[in-house]
Design a protein around this nucleic acid. Structure first.
Length: 273
DNA sequence: CTCCAGGCTTTAG
DNA sequence: CTAAAGCATGGA
């Protein structure tokens, strides 16, 4: 099954290369994208973007296609900040994905002090080793492993995947989530959720913000990593050095939809657009 | 060789 | 409370 959608605010490259997800790979004219136990094939001719999957409703929501992104881009430009206006314009094809909470938690624990190609490799090897092999129209893929599966593996296993010192974080958080689940987190307020995530081993302020934003659709969160710090310094002429303070500065500046603003800035800067 | 990557934990002051 | 050392790995 497949559906299409206007490509103006739904560009596969922008959506996938902006650093929100790590399980995708070029395929034919587009990409194969995996989420949880599902996969889709996405491509575009520049006018329409097409999504092919056995789970079209899942991916319709995953790609956040119910939201009006002309309004989001308009909001970004309304601040009248030149670098943001430019970023939103060149990156307007990206969307804030509604990802799986568990998958986001483990993925962003791996992401700390790491680079995107290596993060993708570690996650890919983990899915091959611990996930299940599945087939769909465009080929085979591996599902993201359950927390219980991750939790029963010793740290040495993750070190063998190349996860480095993050090995014990994965093992320990796997056991904790296998025992407590993630449902209870969904009922927490933005502030409570972030605070609760900080109690997990391997989750600090930046990773918690990414999990809130990508895995729990909390649009007000604003992750500050090494790239955002650079943007703050170079494009906002900021003088603060504490990432928590930089985070507070941007949150109060951009408000309820700060997460979208962060994505436009991050992607445009990192991709040199 | 050093420096860096979507930083966090631990320890010291 | 803040500051800094230590941490695995691979690419530039």
């Amino acid at each position: 099954m497949k559906f299409d959608f206007d490509a103006t605010y739904f560009n596969p490259r922008d959506v996938l290369e902006c650093g929100q997800l790590f399980r995708f790979a070029p395929h034919k004219e587009g990409y194969i994208v995996c989420s949880r136990d599902k996969a889709c094939y996405i491509f575009s001719d520049g006018v329409k973007t097409v999504v092919e999957s056995d789970y079209p409703e899942y991916f319709y929501n995953y790609f956040d296609l119910n939201r009006d992104y002309s309004a989001i881009v308009g909001l970004a430009k309304s601040f009248g900040i030149p670098v943001l206006t430019h970023s939103a314009e060149v990156a307007k094809g990206l969307r804030l994905l509604n990802q799986d909470a568990e998958e986001t938690i483990f993925s962003f624990i791996i992401s700390q002090n790491n680079n995107i190609p290596r993060i993708k490799g570690i996650i890919d090897r983990m899915c091959r080793e611990l996930g299940k092999r599945r087939q769909f129209a465009e080929g085979e893929y591996y599902t993201f492993p359950a927390a219980a599966k991750i939790g029963e593996m010793p740290p040495e296993f993750f070190k063998g995947l190349g996860a480095g010192y993050r090995d014990a974080y994965l093992s320990e958080t796997g056991r904790r989530i296998a025992a407590g689940g993630t449902e209870y987190l969904k009922n927490l307020s933005d502030g409570e959720l972030r605070k609760e995530l900080l109690t997990y081993k391997g989750i600090g302020p930046k990773v918690a913000d990414c999990i809130c934003l990508f895995g729990f659709s909390r649009a007000a969160n604003f992750p500050v990593d090494t790239w955002m710090e650079r943007i703050y310094r170079e494009d906002f002429c900021g003088t603060l050095t504490d990432r928590n303070k930089i985070n507070a500065y941007f949150c109060s500046l951009f408000g309820e939809y700060a997460g979208f603003i962060q994505q436009y800035l991050f992607y445009a800067k990192r991709s040199n657009l």
